[in-house]
Simulated assay, not measured.
Amino acid sequence: MTSPLPDKAADTTAEQPWPVRVLSLKISDYVDRMSQLWVEGQVVQFNPRGGTAFLTLRDPDVDMSLSVSVPMNAVNAMPIPLAQGARVVLQAKPTFWTKRGTLQLEARQIRPVGIGDLLARVEILKRTLAAEGVFDAERKRPIPFLPRRVGLVTGRNSAAEKDVVENARRRWPAVVFEIREVAVQGSSAVTEVVAALRELDALPTVDVIVIARGGGALEELLPFSNEAMIRAVAEARTPVISAIGHDVDQPLLDLGADWRASTPTDAGKKVVPDAARERSTVDGARDRLRRALVRRVESERSGLRALVSRPVMADPVALVRARRQEV
């Protein structure tokens, strides 16, 4: 006679395990008891099929995602077309598919997250980080005068990379770069930039790191106001220069970095000294030193001539002759 299965997971043993079907059904039962909820994320895959759309909803801060199914009539009711990379909030019910052993969300409603909402959240984050002292001037690390190696985190084949590298080499031709090309917009931007930053920060020969990206729409620059990225910059051992967009763009990375460059071109000029100017400074110092040395030698020579020109120096025995008569 077959012994009954344990009622609780804690009661299972190697001799009395649960079959896969029992575990799957219990997980399904637990998930079914969960209520509907609203969840926010970023759409990284969007695949409409007939009356249903299947999408992958990813957390914008960490590498976690969930599969979602949503009726096409809910998608079509959105005020703007749904596209990959969009930030959305949706009402959904978690479900567990026992045959595949997968968890997904069945959405009822889906709404875009507006720019105004995103900017409001950025402002709240700004105040929170400022209250923690993340932006304090006292924690800013000085940019080295002449780094052994410059770390650069930038987009793949980007104009920003060209601007930083060319302007730096124009000023100091021998500068050496350690470049990491990553996504600088979209769903993977935060994780890729943070991973590249940490990789460069671990290299002992990298003395400064530049995070650079050209200009773009406000929503394209939002990854550089992400909390995970700002905290990673604050925790870095190596000084970090922020070079995002144009002078008018001010993501939170500008506040969290050790120095803000108004553009990638500006970063290229800041990261190394101007060789011509430094050479001119050295030449000027050498010239001033030479002139000061000439003046000192001439002064000592004049003093020596004055000393030699004294009568006692012209005829050293004259004083002796004058005193000989007295003796």
Score class of each variant (00 low, 15 high):
residue 9 A to D: 09
residue 19 P to F: 05
residue 148 R to I: 02
residue 239 P to Q: 00
residue 84 Q to P: 08
residue 266 D to T: 07
residue 201 D to E: 08
residue 46 F to D: 05
residue 219 E to M: 12
residue 49 R to E: 05
residue 214 G to E: 02
residue 280 S to N: 09
residue 139 R to K: 06
residue 176 V to K: 11
residue 194 V to R: 11
residue 127 R to S: 13
residue 262 S to F: 05
residue 75 V to A: 07
residue 157 N to W: 01
residue 199 E to I: 00
residue 199 E to W: 00
residue 292 A to G: 15
residue 151 G to A: 02
residue 289 L to V: 11
residue 182 V to A: 12
residue 277 R to F: 05
residue 160 A to I: 03
residue 182 V to D: 10
residue 105 L to M: 09
residue 19 P to K: 12
residue 222 L to E: 07
residue 119 L to Y: 01
residue 246 H to Y: 08
residue 38 W to Y: 14
residue 29 D to C: 09
residue 327 V to I: 14
residue 58 R to P: 04
residue 323 R to I: 06
residue 45 Q to I: 01
residue 14 A to G: 13
residue 64 M to R: 11
residue 72 M to D: 01
residue 285 A to Y: 13
residue 203 L to H: 05
residue 63 D to F: 06
residue 6 P to K: 04
residue 321 R to G: 06
residue 292 A to P: 00
residue 310 R to C: 04
residue 261 A to P: 01
residue 267 A to H: 10
residue 158 S to I: 03
residue 109 Q to Y: 15
residue 163 D to Y: 03
residue 141 R to A: 10
residue 200 L to F: 07
residue 316 P to H: 01
residue 119 L to G: 02
residue 28 S to F: 00
residue 15 E to A: 14
residue 243 A to S: 10
residue 195 A to L: 04
residue 316 P to V: 00
residue 44 V to S: 15
residue 265 T to L: 00
residue 36 Q to D: 15
residue 178 E to L: 03
residue 200 L to Y: 07
residue 258 D to I: 02
residue 134 V to E: 02
residue 248 V to I: 13
residue 159 A to V: 12
residue 185 Q to K: 06
residue 178 E to S: 13
residue 309 S to Q: 12
residue 81 P to W: 03
residue 202 A to F: 01
residue 175 V to P: 00
residue 193 V to H: 05
residue 57 L to C: 07
residue 50 G to D: 03
residue 100 R to F: 06
residue 264 P to N: 05
residue 10 A to V: 11
residue 315 D to S: 10
residue 104 Q to R: 14
residue 232 A to D: 06
residue 306 A to P: 00
residue 324 R to V: 13
residue 266 D to C: 06
